[in-house]
């Protein structure tokens, strides 16, 4: 198999740790008051979920690309 560079533990957990901090900050900020704190709490929690959206959007586009590639390969074979 290909030998890709290995991540250190810090590299593996850099994004997850940032997301966890954003989540916890959002949860606590909302508890400490109303008004702008609630707004900041919603934003932090929504931002912490964005990677899922991003990953699934990427997935869709790559699935699309793969489907197209498969299709053109099929065309080449049949022609």
């Amino acid at each position: 198999m290909r030998h890709k560079p290995r991540n250190t533990l810090l590299q593996t957990f850099a994004v997850p740790l940032t997301l966890a901090i954003a989540t916890v900050a959002g949860l606590i900020l909302g508890l400490t008051g109303d008004g702008w704190r609630d707004l900041a709490s919603w934003l932090l929690l929504i931002v912490s979920l964005l990677p899922i959206r991003a990953a699934f959007a990427r997935r869709r586009s790559s699935a699309h690309r793969n489907a197209r590639l498969g299709h053109s390969r099929l065309e080449r074979k049949t022609s």
């Binding site: 890709k4 560079p5 290995r6 991540n7 533990l9 593996t12 957990f13 850099a14 994004v15 997850p16 990677p51 991003a54 990953a55 699934f56 990427r58 997935r59 790559s62 699935a63 793969n66």
Partner: peptide
């Protein structure tokens, strides 16, 4: 940690 050693964050292989 061991699973993601060679994968970038957010990998979903379809």
């Amino acid at each position: 940690a061991p699973f993601m050693r060679r994968l970038p964050f957010g990998t979903v292989r379809t």
